[in-house]
Computed example of a mutant assay.
Amino acid sequence: MDIANSRWLWLSTVPVVMIVLLQAAIFLRRAWRDGKEMGLTEEKLKTGFKTGIISAIGPSIAVLAGMLALIATVGGPVAWMRLTVIGSIAFELPAAELGLSQFGYSLGDEGISETAYAAAVWAMTLGGTGWLLVSAFGTRHMETVRSKISNGNEKLIPVISAAAMLGAFAYFLSGEVAAGTPETGAAAVGGLAMLALLHVADSRDIQWVREWSLGAAMFVGLLAGVAVQVTVGSWW
């Protein structure tokens, strides 16, 4: 852990995090400029920006909790860098475990060698490269693919986009629902809370409820999952 939290490791991870922050700033600037070119008012742009920040709170809590677990296993610098770039504790911990296991260690063991630690870091880094390469070289072609799927019908593009998002969320959610009773309870209660909040926001036209609905639903679902775990445990 002295090596994992050393000054040189902190310094080596700073440039990676700075690049991510620079990308975020560039995307924000482009979105703001393109929004104005599309005819959006500054008020609508500010509302969208605020909604995006609020909607990110819920997922960020999960990433923060995962970072605490990752700090205890691979140290602060690597945890900071990996979750800044990828943000998926569900990938990072198994990847670190895979690297350590090649030398007979497991996460949480005492006396992990420097070589085993380096293998864990390389497994996390190289294992996540695929996503970055797909994003770097494939993103510019996604609009073309989407247009071909819609066969030139502009009305189908929003439908295809919504279906793709639903499919992605369903893929990740199905694994969690099958993991155990607490996970199933968390997903069910969180989903019902989201529907209820959106119903209130739409029926009464309350914008702030709509903005906070995602984070609130995730938090309610999290509490429900903990309650099920504490009271009845896992039935499968």
Rank of each mutant, 00 (worst) to 15 (best):
Glu211Thr: 12
Ala227Asp: 11
Ala224Ile: 12
Ala186Glu: 03
Ala224Trp: 13
Glu211His: 10
Leu166Cys: 13
Ser203Trp: 01
Gly180Lys: 05
Ser203Glu: 12
Phe172Gln: 11
Ala168Met: 10
Asp202Lys: 08
Gly180His: 02
Ala178Ile: 01
Arg204Cys: 10
Leu198Asn: 14
Glu211Leu: 00
Trp208His: 02
Thr181Asp: 02
Ile206Cys: 04
Trp212Leu: 15
Ser174Gly: 05
Gly167Arg: 10
Leu195Ser: 12
Ser203Met: 02
Leu214Val: 13
Ala188Asp: 09
Gly215Asp: 02
Val226Phe: 15
Gly215Lys: 06
Leu198Thr: 00
Val226Tyr: 15
Thr181Arg: 01
Glu183Tyr: 07
Ala179Arg: 10
Arg204Ile: 02
Thr181Cys: 09
Val220Leu: 14
Arg210Thr: 03
Ala168Thr: 07
Ser203Ile: 00
Ala193Thr: 15
Ile206Glu: 13
Ala193Ser: 15
Trp208Phe: 14
Ala201Met: 12
Ser203Gly: 14
Gly185Asn: 03
Ser174Ala: 08
Gly221Ser: 14
Gly167Leu: 06
Gly190Ala: 14
Val226Arg: 13
Arg204Val: 02
Phe172Asp: 00
Tyr171Ile: 06
Ala179Trp: 02
Asp202Val: 00
Leu198Arg: 13
Trp208Gln: 09
Ala179Gly: 07
Leu222Val: 11
Val209Tyr: 11
Val189Met: 13
Ala227Phe: 14
Ala187Cys: 10
Gly167Gln: 05
Met218Ala: 02
Gly167Ile: 07
Val189Gly: 08
Ala178Trp: 00
Ala224Met: 08
Ala188Lys: 08
Ala170Ile: 13
Val177Glu: 01
Ala217Thr: 08
Ala170Pro: 03
Val226Glu: 10
Val209Thr: 12
Phe172Arg: 04
Phe172Tyr: 10
Leu173Lys: 04
Ala227Asn: 04
Ala201Pro: 01
Val226Pro: 05
Thr184Pro: 00
Leu214Pro: 02
Ala168Gly: 07
Ala217His: 04
Met194Gln: 13
Phe219Asp: 02
Val177Asp: 03
Gln207Leu: 08
Ser203Pro: 00
Gly185Ala: 07
Leu195Tyr: 08
Leu192Thr: 13
Met218Tyr: 13
Met194Asp: 05
Ala186Trp: 01
Glu183His: 10
Gly167Ala: 01
Gly190Leu: 13
Ala216His: 03
Glu176Trp: 01
Gly221Glu: 07
Gly167Ser: 06
Ala187Asn: 07
Gly221Phe: 06
Val226Gly: 06
Ile206Asp: 06
Leu192Arg: 05
Leu222Glu: 04
Gln229Met: 10
Thr184Asn: 01
Ala201Gln: 04
Ala196Phe: 12
Leu223Lys: 07
Gln207Lys: 12
Gly175Trp: 00
Gln229Asn: 14
Gln229His: 14
His199Gly: 14
Gly215Glu: 02
Trp212Glu: 00
Phe169Pro: 04
His199Gln: 12
Ala186Pro: 06
Ser203Tyr: 05
Val220Cys: 11
